[in-house]
Design a protein around this nucleic acid. Structure first.
Lengths: 232, 232
DNA sequence: CAGACGAGCCTTACGTCGTAAGGCCAACCG
DNA sequence: CGGTTGGCCTTACGACGTAAGGCTCGTCTG
């Protein structure tokens, strides 16, 4: 009956919040049932009274980011009410991107989940609404969703990875060795790579590249929309 | 000194071949040092005389698929010699895709590797050569590479996952429950989903969707190419 | 031909993980 | 006041990757 009770009781939300903090700080690999429990001042098995297991924990993390994205994207689109479908989607995706920049582990986690996180349905509903409202048929809208791929969630699934710090140096060295067999790549790197200023999420996945790809797709889709409208 | 020796000696190649077979048959999760060793009639630790460890094993797997892709893509482009850049790249990417369809685990593995697999440099060199030969500046070509993303390796990084068999049923049921809150999604699914015939690699990642996205990007890039040529 | 050597494989063991099973204890309800 | 229940802990098991060192051959040397 001192100032505070024995301690704050555990809960699903508290566990998820601690997990997010842990992963933000130390990466996915650090997220262990034992470690998470320790961060909460508790034993590992106690977590199982609030979470169905490790998979359930990961599902919870995913739902949390999706919710964060949905909120940010809905807000962004509300701000852009009245704009055309392009700018509304654009703001939506860019809002999602800022969330992803806060949680660099999210893309990998997202695409590793074996089942579709429930929250994404709601998120895609919003995108779809924008498209339909913008004059797209369900057929084209469906294809648009596929074409966007991970851009809709704010990240470009890069094949060429982050490569931060010494890794980047190692990769550069490796590439230099191969340079004579790879004339075009070498030339492009020489011409482009060192002009890059903002490699944030993924290798060269700068804001510029992200928006370039977005506009490429938007241009194509706008044409497709007009074509299908003309067909009717 | 009977017909065969005690047994075929182990080797890096034999280990990698067995690993590929194992993963093709039972998925990534089944790939364990102990299990792989067992498949080879050997104890786990024996593998360490030919491989530097689990990570090295995965690197080997990745290099193997990349090599397979490179070979298929180079062959495809050779067949298309004389065509314009679009058809050459198109055939290249579609060839990569057929390789990925043989190894459904490859996309996830690819995008989980912490370091850039050396083989991809060579592969991208080929793409870049096609682009430059087709009249692209390094600047636009660079952006094109980013825009292609995982399509260049033959797969679309889908957010909505495979969902095979009962999983698909479960997802469908789940979606049905939400349907009233998700009018557009519900309508689109009703209109589109059951018309889908060929969900092969990833949810709805049918050949059609893949090629649609490809052409969308190609159209946009063609414009960008002309624009930059006009600027000179 | 004897003996040493070394490659290739095995045995044992450690520390980590997720988690099943059950015990302990305080808070609450009758 | 005694019983119940829910929250947390203890212990334990079977995976996993892999460090360290032992055994057994084929081969090469003197």
């Amino acid at each position: 009956m001192a100032a505070r009770k024995r301690r704050e009781p555990l809960s699903r939300d508290r566990a998820l919040a601690a997990a997010t903090a842990l992963v933000d700080a130390e990466g996915m690999a650090a997220l262990t049932m034992r470690r998470l429990a320790a961060d909460l001042g508790v034993e590992a098995m106690s977590l199982y009274h609030h979470l169905p297991g490790k998979e359930g924990l990961l599902d919870g993390l995913v739902d949390a980011v999706i919710a964060e994205i949905t909120a940010a994207a809905d807000q962004a689109e509300t701000d852009a009410a009245g704009g055309d479908w392009r700018t509304r989607l654009r703001l939506r995706f860019l809002a999602a991107r800022t969330v992803m920049l806060r949680h660099p582990w999210a893309p990998a986690l997202l695409s590793s989940r074996p089942t579709i996180p429930p929250g994404v349905y709601g998120y895609y509903e919003g995108i779809l609404a924008t498209l339909v409202d913008g004059g797209f048929s369900y057929r084209i809208a469906h294809r648009a969703l596929h074409a966007f791929g991970s851009l809709a969630l704010g990240f470009a699934q890069e094949v060429l990875k982050p490569a931060t710090g010494e890794e980047a140096d190692a990769a550069e060295a490796e590439l230099a060795v191969l340079a004579e067999q790879l004339p075009h790549l070498g030339a492009m790197v020489a011409a482009e790579m060192h002009a890059a200023t903002d490699p944030t999420l993924g290798w060269c996945d700068s804001q510029t590249e992200f928006e370039f790809t977005l506009d490429l797709l938007f241009d194509g889709l706008e044409q497709a929309r007009c074509r299908s409208a003309a067909d009717e």
